[in-house]
Each structure stands twice: as C-alpha cells, then as structure tokens.
Nucleic acid binder design. Structure first.
Lengths: 167, 167
DNA sequence: TATTGTTATACTCTATAACTATA
DNA sequence: TATAGTTATAGAGTATAACAATA
C-alpha cells in the first residue's frame, strides 16, 4: 500500500499521458481510429471471441463496442459470424486483411516510439510495459464503480459511520 | 534503443491504459471533467501562465485550451486577467476555490487508486510515476508530427530516397 | 503583417435508453 | 422474462478554419 502523495502524483501522470497517446495516434491512417486498433489488437492477442467479451476487455459499454466493431467489420478487417449455439451472439474473428493491417500499423508505432524514446534502454521499456500491464490488470473490468468509491471521502476506518451515534 | 517487439507491446499497453483513465474519471464530480482537472493541475504545478503556455503543456490546440479554461474560469476555479505587457494575452491563476477543489479531488483519486492498487509497493508506484513522467517528457510538445514519421515505413537509412536515381 | 486568443464546425469516443431478435 | 447486440441521442475531447483584437 503506497502513500497518499504517490497516488496524487500517479493520478497526474496518468492524466498527462493522454498527450502521449494523442502523439502516437497522429501517425495512424485516417480511417483507422484508435478504437478500431484496440479491437483488432485484442482479437489478435486473445483469439476469436463474442461481442460481450470484447466489451469486457475494452472496459467500455456494449453499445460502444458495437460501433467500433461495425467500423472494423465494414472495412473487412474482422469477420462477424453468428454463434451456432446461440444465435443472439456473434463471433468475432480477425481476417487476413486485419492481420496485415496490424502489421503495417505496428511499423508505424515502432517508428514513432523509436523516435520519441531513443534514449530508453531495453530494460526501462520492459519495466514500463510490465507496470502498465499490471495496472491495467488491477483495474480489470472497471465499467462500474465500486460503491465505496462513490461515497464521502474518508470515514475513519477505525470507527465506521454506522457505528457512530452521538460522539 | 529498444527492440521492435517491445515497442509493439508498449503501444498496446498505452492503448489499454485508457480503461484505467476512464475508471479513475468515474469518481469525479459531474461538472469537473478530466480536461478541467488537467488545467488546474498544471496551474498548481507550474504557477501562473499564459494560454499559449497552457496549450503547450497540455499538448492540445489553443482552441481546446480556450474551452477548457473557460469552463474552469466560469466556475471560479481560476482567474483570467489580461497581461499588462501584452493585452492580447491573458494570465491564468489558480484561485483559492480552485486550490480547494484540487484538494478534494486528490482525496477521491487517492481512495480510488488505493482501492485498485492495494497490492502495489511504494517502490513499484514510484517506478511507474518516474517512467510515465519520463515518457511524457520525451514526447514533449507533440502537437505536430515530425515529418520523418509521416512518410513511408522504413527507407534504408544508408541510402536516402533523394539519392536514388535508377537503381 | 504576425500573433494571441475565441468561436463555429466537424469528427471520435463514450454512456444511457429504447429497441430487435433470440433464449 | 431475460439476455446479446444494435441504434438513437447526448455529452466530452479534439482539430481545423474563420474571426477579433492587439502587436
């Protein structure tokens, strides 16, 4: 468990990292927005899956997933076939064209990151990859807020509010 | 200089980290969107500055900065006074109300991060803070794309395109 | 004429709610 | 009735372009 000021700093760094994401996004082709790439990457990484699973991995609403996936499917980068065992569902699969696109995009990312991170060592990049991966994992499917995070700031843990009577 | 597959992995982690940012944003009050907090944080960190400097630090267009700042100023969290030495400019200053808001938001962030990152050690959090800070620094003012990132994937560096005639 | 900042417009990402089709 | 997915609508973030005021 880390100290308060560390969390404050981390929150600021996470806020600032948006600029890095935008900087990277600028090297992408026009009809391939970041949302599309996220879908393709997850499909490449985890293999075929249903819409609901994709929504969970993206940690966005199903409606958002549906639009991203439609955009990608319209361009032939993935295939949506009905699940034979439950015809409400659709199975998403990366097409060869989608795989090819990922390869091309990867080149662009590598060039861009190589440009901006020329002074980073292998070990440092690995550390960052590993810490970011763990952070994402710990947040998990964070689409709904744990109720204890929505209430008042800091009820003294040694003396829960429900136990306070007249002090 | 790191290896290609590392950059590919890093690009994926950066894409996935959006979910973390959304998860954190969910604990914020309704009329204080992430853009407002970014403005307030930078003002708190760097002290008073002009719009153009704020735009540079945010690495967004001036038009975007103008809207974020207007939103924050409308709520009394910062003060925009004309620069006496150049009346085209405005000097941004954090108000006491803005400072107070930052304190309250900080509590929320700390609670949320404490919830999600309960298994992280001080050292690990520090490492992540430090690596993210360095990454943001290395991207700097990345609002315009270096031209070498917009061209074709990988012209052999030993034989620049302009030198090729009939090979 | 160039620069600082604002406003109008358009596009992407996201969430909520209403809807369709299937279980 | 409940669930998987789609679509309509609305709000936030961003960029480009046209504009105003000042240098």
């Amino acid at each position: 468990m880390a100290a308060q000021s560390q969390y404050e700093q981390l929150a600021r760094q996470l806020s600032a990292i948006g600029a890095v994401k935008r900087g990277l996004a600028r090297v992408l082709p026009n009809d391939c927005p970041p949302g599309s790439i996220a879908v393709l990457n997850l499909l490449d990484l985890h293999g075929e899956m249903r819409m609901s699973r994709m929504a969970e991995l993206l940690a966005v609403d199903m409606s958002v997933t549906s639009r991203h996936v439609a955009h990608v499917a319209d361009r032939g980068w993935l295939d949506r076939s009905p699940d034979p065992s439950d015809r409400r569902s659709r199975i998403l699969r990366l097409t060869p064209e989608g795989k090819l696109l990922l390869t091309e995009l990867s080149e662009r990312y590598v060039r861009a990151l190589g440009h901006y991170m020329e002074n980073w060592s292998d070990e440092e990049v690995d550390q960052l990859i590993s810490l970011l991966g763990r952070l994402r994992e710990d947040f998990g499917d964070c689409r709904s807020i744990p109720s204890r995070l929505t209430d008042e700031p800091a009820p003294a843990p040694s003396d829960p509010p429900t136990a306070r009577t007249s002090l």
